[in-house]
């Protein structure tokens, strides 16, 4: 049992990671190349099955919430009915059925757009806090933020055409340099994690501390 929980996952990581990595760089024999393709396909299949298990977890938690009458338990009925009802509808009548499309277009899409639109207010309040000039760094952030905002909208150009040029300079030089530096660091970090998985040194995903 311990072998199944620790050694097997590590060796699967070593084997799968090595094959996929080799297939990216070397023209390997066709059957080995197929293994790489299979590994990537299995991942999609496993993810689909795992989604079903996730849905099971969702149902269990909301059923418990109703059973124990926890706070806002009545909304759990909405979740359960929507999850089961829409799944059954999709299985029985396919995704092209008018009722399926009607619910998607008139319930899901507007709700989704509404939630996403709230982001505008969250961004505004975050900007307000971040842009307060409490120290030198925050003052630079405030100044560059104001210039980029003015340079990105028509009214900024109407006030002074130079905002546009300054915005382009900020975006092309300091901003690009910082972002590329972070990207290189993150890419090396990803390579490091991947090598640790391939060499069997990374074990955080197997549980424990």
């Amino acid at each position: 049992m311990k072998i199944l929980r620790s050694s097997v996952p590590i060796w699967l990581g070593v084997f799968g990671g090595s094959i996929v990595l080799l297939a990216m760089f070397i023209k390997i024999p066709v059957h080995v190349g197929l293994w790489s393709k299979w590994f990537l396909e299995w991942r999609v299949i496993l993810a689909s099955f795992a989604l079903t298990l996730g849905a099971g977890n969702l149902l269990r938690i909301h059923a418990n919430r109703i059973r124990m009458k926890r706070e806002a338990w009545m909304y759990s009925y909405v979740t359960i009915v929507a999850l089961i009802g829409y799944t059954v509808l999709g299985i029985l009548f396919k995704r092209t059925h008018p009722v399926y499309s009607f619910i998607f277009d008139n319930a899901y899409s507007p709700l989704s757009a509404t939630v996403f639109s709230i982001n505008a207010f969250y961004i505004s309040s975050a900007c307000y806090r971040a842009f307060r000039a409490r120290n030198g760094h925050a003052a630079v952030l405030l100044l560059s933020g104001v210039i980029v905002m003015l340079g990105s909208v028509g009214i900024g150009y109407a006030i002074w055409p130079g905002f546009n040029t300054m915005t382009q300079w900020i975006m092309n030089y300091p901003n690009s340099a910082a972002m590329r530096g972070m990207n290189i660091g993150a890419a090396l970090g990803i390579i490091g994690v991947s090598l640790r998985v391939i060499f069997g040194l990374e074990r955080g995903h197997l549980g424990g501390e």
Partner: peptide, 28 residues
């Protein structure tokens, strides 16, 4: 950037993972 990817080494202080983090820095 790469700070998240050194979590195992930093939190767990596992020697082999610390070595891997040094490799990341040399990669930089």
């Amino acid at each position: 950037g790469d700070e998240l990817f050194v979590a195992g080494a930093y939190i767990g202080r596992k020697p082999l993972q610390v070595g891997a983090v040094y490799a990341q820095d040399f990669g930089k």
